[in-house]
Write a protein that binds this DNA or RNA. Structure first.
Lengths: 256, 256
DNA sequence: CGTCAAGAAAGTGTCTACACTATTGCGTTC
DNA sequence: GAACGCAATAGTGTAGACACTTTCTTGACG
């Protein structure tokens, strides 16, 4: 558990001290930490999660650990088997496609609704958001790129006027974030994202729902194939022998 | 209060690919029971949830109660405020519209994907499902109608081939189930559902995605206005039984 | 009479302990 | 030597207790 706790996701974690002053966020901290362990493959897909071990590692009791795991189970990160505990859910390539398909559905619908309902000023907020970051976009750190990209798409969802869409998209983002991050760091990552976003903004300004949806769909689908390759590389890296770690040679169903 | 709570809910939350949760013990029972209290308005919208009171009522400790409440929070039934506890989330008319809009988006996308991907035999399963229940459909008890209707729509989601859509739709259904039930019992409930479903099946057999989506959208939107009225009636019934004095006073009815 | 403050009560967040279940290891039997 | 059963161990599920926070009550002061 000796991992630098800097540069987490866009959630500012005050992970400086385990001060007793505010013990009410122990569960929340556990949630963030465990999710990080999951997205970084420290907890490997298919692996059984040992609550006691985790609680020792985080310095809290099992109660907040279990609360966090329950949350993560509701969000699809882990699964719970009755009397055997929590398991890291393996995100297969197939499951990834399903998730991206869902994301495409949600985002296209959001874009259409935005075109129909949003005020001019709101659309302009989208334009401003993108113009403010487009210049140095590619030069940022992967985490920053990821946050800015998610922010862009989430803003579209917000401008749809339907908070449920925002919630759904946020949930989807959380589940594919670690893969997206891997993909951003992958050689296959290129600058098509930038031009795609610009084109989407242009369609939004013209309120051209049809074209915007088409662009969005292509934009999302374009990343899928690249992401598939990135996922394979990542899994290979994690499970590869010589990683100096614990690949137990039990008869384990290959679950990816 | 000590009856096995497995009356209306046929499926808690099949979140996608794996059976994510099945705590066959008191935690699961607490989840089902509390959700029932929520959908029956025994726990009223906006109300603060007292964990101790609940645990006494259910005859278990606070631990499984809290696990259940955390789950319900992840699913949007209740909300959690840091040091003040869980609150019953009020589903405003506006929020209801958002939820139905999301449902329409998911279902239309599922129908389209089904038309593109499903085998002929699968489409036929949908036809068979509907033909098997269409005759006595209107004469069933409200709970049965509700289950059969949800099954119909869920089957479409399944035939889309994307388990994520099934999970999303199931989650949405769980959140609007109590209102749908109210609406079914409401005088405004008519037989347009039956003809709509039949038309949707016909479109599916012809794999007419465009027409089917249009039918679905209309089918869902048609119930919205009726449901709004039903919701108003229900809230009126819950909050104004004569004495408008005590909305928050402790007036705890055991079971009805 | 109203406002505010201090103490009491209620309630949540977390910890520790214990019961019960699943898993592992070992010895017995064929 | 292998399969089976039994004991030992590890691990989850739940209960109850404690600490801290919020909310309510009561009394003093303007």
């Amino acid at each position: 558990m000796t991992e630098r706790a800097e540069s987490t996701d866009n959630d500012p974690l005050p992970a400086g001290e385990a001060d007793t002053r505010r013990t009410a966020d122990s569960s929340e901290r556990a949630y963030n930490t465990i999710r990080k362990l999951l997205v970084e493959f420290t907890l490997k897909p298919g692996e059984r999660i040992n609550e006691v071990q985790l609680s020792r590692g985080l310095g809290v009791s099992r109660t907040p650990i279990r609360e966090a795991l329950n949350r993560l189970a509701s969000e699809g990160f882990v699964s719970l088997t009755p009397n055997r505990g929590f398991f890291v859910r393996s995100l297969s390539t197939e499951g990834l496609l399903d998730l991206y398909e869902l994301r495409s559905i949600i985002e296209c619908a959001a874009f259409k609704l935005m075109c129909e309902r949003a005020e001019d000023g709101e659309i302009d907020r989208l334009r401003q958001y993108w113009e403010a970051i487009v210049d140095g976009y590619r030069d940022q750190a992967p985490d920053v790129i990821l946050a800015e990209d998610e922010g862009f798409h989430l803003l579209i969802a917000e401008l749809s006027g339907n908070p449920e869409l925002v919630g759904q998209l946020a949930s989807i983002n959380a589940r594919i974030r670690f893969i997206r991050r891997i993909q951003i760091e992958h050689p296959s990552h290129d600058k098509t994202q930038v031009t795609a976003h610009s084109a989407i903004v242009a369609a939004a300004v013209k309120r051209d729902a049809e074209n915007g949806m088409k662009l969005l769909r292509e934009h999302i689908e374009m990343t899928v194939s690249a992401t598939q390759q990135a996922l394979k590389d990542a899994l290979l890296r994690v499970f590869a022998p010589g990683n100096g770690a614990d690949l137990k040679r039990r008869r384990r169903a290959r679950d990816t």
